Amino acid sequence: MKMKYNLLALSVVTAGLSFTCHANESFDLQSMIAAAKKEDPIIVYAPTGKIVQQAKDFTAKYGIEAVGIKAKAPHIIEIISREAQADNVKADVALIEDAPATQVQLLKKGYVTSWVPDDMKQDISQDNQNPLTVVLAPNVWAYNTAQYSTCPITNIWQLTEPKWRHKIAMQDPLIKPLYVDTFNQMASHYDDQMAKAYQALYGKALKTDEGSATAEFVKRLAQNGPLLTKSDGDAAQAIGAPDVKDSFVGLISTAKFRENKNGMKLGICHDMKPFIGSLYPSPGVITTKTNSPNASKLFIHYLMTAEGIKLQGIDGKMSSNQKVALPAEEASGIQQYRTQLMTFKTSSLNSDWQQRQDWMDLWSLNYQR
């Protein structure tokens, strides 16, 4: 029996039923669809406005009502936490662009669960199954194609050289957890590659008093006085504006390459060592006390298909389902350089969370305007 659903109020009256998602459950899509049609409509949160249309498309496909709501990660986490604590759960599914916070603040507390469809497990890397990563967002080093025929940066350590002082644009790491998480992932899993990149560029081993090659890089980058912006759009404008007079390179989301059709001149620094950027994971989770467990799992399954994720794929966001390629109309061309991106290891999400403040402190203490 359907319960009252007020679209304007975005309110679902739930019965507080509990369920647990097991990754080894046998999967029967048709049975799930049939069960989902008997459940309440679902509310889905995500950091992109595309989720509104994705929910509408899901409803049209399955005849199961879903409403998508755009919200940033801290807001989504707060909503889910408060509803769980009040035993008044209204949210059903969430994509959260903050994997460490999702792990520590939601999954560990039992407010949400992670479910991996059995029919897709073989096509999803183990690094993206616990928790399930629905999308991987590429953030890449970029340059102005009107000023350079190829990217002037071929090695990440060049960004610390005097030539690029005040010539690097990126969002402020103090307001962009993605970047400090990237620092910790680099130090935890790729520090040997950072050290080797230094030696390849300068012909000698790195000497540092810091605890890792990555920490030395972060310190030097901060000391080089990057232009810190409040948004990807501002960083992209500094890098790729057609009439820009200063020669900037910078770190931006592939979504900003859509602006090339409007005159921007953004290019990817492909073949940059040791990697050209990173793939940041957005877990897809289901609230533990959702009143619509089958509809919620069906929505996750839908997002893991080429049809379901296409609207986000146009921005360069990649599915963790390795059978799903980016749409042809994706603007940056990142698909061909996927193997050059640093991948996140979800095994160290707890460390990413615990070390955030340390990386922020290292950045703050060394940043020079």
Rank of each mutant, 00 (worst) to 15 (best):
Q368F: 08
L228Q: 05
E210M: 14
G277A: 08
W157P: 07
A306I: 01
Q126P: 05
S114P: 03
F257T: 03
H270S: 07
Q53C: 00
A91Y: 00
Q30W: 10
D181R: 10
V12I: 13
Q355D: 10
D358M: 09
P281V: 01
K196W: 11
L178V: 07
E216L: 10
P131Q: 06
A238L: 07
K345P: 10
I79H: 11
Q171S: 10
L7G: 13
I309E: 04
M318N: 07
D119I: 09
N184Q: 13
T154I: 04
W359D: 00
L298A: 01
S212W: 05
E83L: 02
G233E: 14
V104E: 14
I300Y: 05
I64R: 03
A238P: 12
T346Y: 14
L206H: 12
Y302R: 10
A101Y: 11
T150S: 15
A222G: 04
D246F: 08
I156L: 08
L159F: 05
D118P: 06
A36D: 01
N155L: 03
P283N: 04
G211H: 14
A142R: 13
L279D: 06
K317T: 07
P117H: 08
S347T: 15
A241R: 09
K219P: 10
D358W: 13
N350E: 12
V44F: 03
M120D: 02
D246L: 11
K289V: 01
T14F: 11
T154A: 05
L17D: 02
Q322L: 07
A137T: 13
I69Q: 14
S81H: 06
N88V: 12
P293T: 03
K61G: 03
Q223V: 05
Q171F: 11
D98G: 10
M194S: 03
W141D: 06
Q199G: 05
K273S: 11
M360V: 04
T133F: 06
F217L: 07
P173L: 03
L10V: 02
Q122F: 11
N144A: 15
I168G: 01
S351W: 01
T145D: 12
D315H: 09
Q129A: 02
P293K: 05
T160C: 04
R369L: 11
N6W: 08
A71E: 02
P162S: 00
S212H: 09
N139T: 15
K61C: 02
Y148I: 00
A84H: 11
P138T: 07
A137V: 13
K273D: 03
E97F: 15
S296M: 05
I309C: 02
I124R: 06
L159N: 02
A241E: 08
L178Q: 07
Q193A: 12
H270Y: 09
T102N: 07
L174W: 00
K204G: 00
L95Q: 11
T290E: 06
M304A: 04
A331G: 02
Q105E: 15
Y45T: 02
W115E: 05
T145Q: 14
K310H: 09
I334P: 08
Q105M: 15
E39G: 00
